[in-house]
Amino acid sequence: MSEPFTKSMARNIFIGGGLFSFLLFVGLTVDTMERLPERDNRQNITPEVALGKKVWEDNNCVGCHTILGEGAYFAPELGNVYQRLGHSTEAIKVMIKSRPVEGVPGRRSMPQFNLTEEELEGIAQFLKWTSEINTNNWPPNIQG
């Protein structure tokens, strides 16, 4: 019995389709890398911003918050927190500094991370920098 669609045809679709997809994806990635400098606000990555990202990671902030919509959904979006707190890095620092060690009875509360002044400035500058990335107008409103 002649088979209209054979296993080797199926294999060729897998190999050909898979390779083509990866090559196209790599091509799109190269193009994206060329266009990113116009959008990702990299010219404003200062040493404070770099330190801030390190502080962000070392304290696993993404374990509760989202940043540009990615992370955990337990605490507010922080991609636009700079704007939400009135375009103030100082307000971000006060917010982080003021968390009660034992939490708030019955409520979700951010832990007290005991950050140094330098680390606080870093995280605030990192969040300000993040808020200036061109995200195709996301989030839809100030509440994130």
Binding site: F5, T6, K7, A10, R11, I13, F14, G17, G18, F20, S21, F22, L24, F25, L28, D31, T32, R35, L36, R39, D40, N41, L68, G69, E70, I133, N134, T135, N136, W138, P139
Partner: peptide
Amino acid sequence: EKWLYVIIAMTLITGVIGTGHHYYFIGTP
């Protein structure tokens, strides 16, 4: 095995560039 090939072919053809659904709002073009 023929089914397997077709299924995983569709997986890669749709899913690899489908990564783009994570590139909407993170600063990418």
